[in-house]
């Protein structure tokens, strides 16, 4: 049963990932990525992490993906790759490198892991409940937790700063512009 569920979700996750990088339309990409994230959330559940399952769905699928979709739609940037590729040889080389990386990663994963089923029993039953995770977060991982808070604060400031400047800029000429042919009107 476990195996069936695993292979099913794994297939969905893979399909979502591949479809995401292949899709020409950014909206489609976002939706495929959403699919992938959902599948991974399910995998988290299979791995006895109900808390992360929730987070994955609420933060990733809920917040981050919505942000992505929002920006895509706002900018109307569904399809931007219509123009001629300026680095025609870059993609084939990238594929070769990707293949190399894939081989290495798979070798590492296979040889580096155990094929036995992970431990079960009583310890495994109690494993992974949100309470213990929360406790760790506030005891052992108190410092990273705090730093994360600062990172989020910085990110907020960053978005505000970048936004604010944009408003100023509309009233200003852009004196410091380098002449560039690639600027589109």
């Amino acid at each position: 049963m476990d195996f069936v569920l695993f292979f099913l979700t794994a297939a969905i996750a893979l399909a979502g990932a591949i479809a995401m990088i292949v899709a020409r339309n950014a909206v489609h990409s976002a939706l495929f990525l959403l699919l992938n994230f959902g599948a991974i959330a399910v995998l988290f559940l299979l791995l006895q992490s109900p808390f992360l399952f929730t987070i994955q769905l609420s933060i990733y699928a809920g917040a981050i993906m919505v942000l992505f979709l929002f920006v895509v739609m706002l900018l109307g940037a569904e399809q931007v790759e219509a123009a001629q590729d300026k680095l025609p040889w870059q993609q084939p080389l990238a594929l070769v490198m990707g293949a190399g990386l894939l081989v290495i990663a798979m070798i590492t994963a296979v040889r580096g892991g155990s094929n036995d089923a992970p431990p079960g029993g009583e310890a495994a039953e109690a494993f992974g409940d949100p309470a213990s995770l929360g406790e760790l977060l506030f005891t052992k991982y108190l410092l990273p937790f705090q730093i994360t808070g600062i990172i989020l604060l910085v990110a907020v400031i960053g978005v505000v700063v970048l936004n604010q400047q944009r408003n100023q800029a509309q009233t200003e000429e852009t004196p410091g512009e380098r002449p560039s042919s690639s600027v589109q009107p």
Partner: peptide, 30 residues
């Protein structure tokens, strides 16, 4: 129970796909 290796293998493949996405896509959002 599904062995850890399976999960890690899946994760390795997904990671590589992500890397490829960065390499070949030109749409900044993607």
């Amino acid at each position: 129970m599904v062995p850890t290796t399976f999960y890690v293998l899946l994760s390795a493949v997904l990671f590589t796909i992500g890397v490829l996405g960065v390499l070949i896509r030109r749409n900044a959002i993607v």
